[in-house]
Amino acid sequence: MTSQTLASLDDTELSRYLEGSGLRFCVGPYTYALRSPLPIIRYGLARLYADHPLAANDGFADFHLSFRANGLLDFLRGHIHFQVDEQSPFAAIPKAQAYAFLEWGMNWCVSVTLHEYLKLHAAVVAKNGVAVVLPGLPGAGKSTLSAALALRGWRLLSDEHAMLEPGSNKLVPLPRPVSLKNDSIELIQAFEPSAIMGPVSEDTHKGSVAHLKADLASDSHDLARLPARFLVFPRYQAGAKLRLSPKGRAESFMFAAHHSFNYSLLGESGFDSMSRFIDNLECFDLHYGSIDQAHSAMESLLHGRYGA
């Protein structure tokens, strides 16, 4: 693909779009249109979305987002509203947290508005054309693990949404920066000093949040669907011994269903899609105490399967 990326815009052009008709860029199959007067948003986008394709200005955007101060009260408190479709569904936020909120809001749009895919709450990484789905409860370490894998040559398909084409085992890539919280920020910086991070937002409801540029593979923005082969439930525990153990399909089904954004909305067809999906997978629990351990376990998973 030779389409223009965000990196082709200099700072002046970037502000002109953001403060004017909106910056339109692609994330996997979706197009975002974003308006914002905030320097921190411009800085974060330039750093983390440099390789994302730009979309036509006169085309169709799936999601229209903007940051806007609503009146005097926002202005006096240094707050700003995050708008979706020109509506303000959320309370005002401090400007310093705007970047974390943008990333959160971009996820929110995907989670609640479209249902053409079965959407699971999971990170997705791939190597040699084989995708591994990493669901996880908050704190289980899925983001830290996928960040580390992205920095060691794996392709990151998604940080938050495993998007499954109904009735298949094909996943739709949705490459976005990886959201890192609190200790994970330093951990990843130490793991790979050259890692590119966006602005750090302090004191959000999740603590400190920063994002890692993770579209590092040459095919990061390729739109082709990838077959999923493994469902791995990571669980990080400081000092734990590595354990990669097979997990039951029914149990995995249940977990994935409970952590899906739209399994319930899709009704019986959601059940059918999940059944087909789980049948095509090998499921594992991965308990680990260090990123390096988990990395080597993930490599062995691929090699065990393909004998490379």
Binding site: F60, L114, H115, E116, L265, G267
Partner: peptide, 18 residues
């Protein structure tokens, strides 16, 4: 209707069916 538009209309329809 263009596919990228239809999927939004369809999302409303799926929610209605649910």
């Amino acid at each position: 209707i263009p596919q990228e538009v239809w999927r939004h209309l369809d999302a409303g329809w799926l929610l209605h069916q649910k």
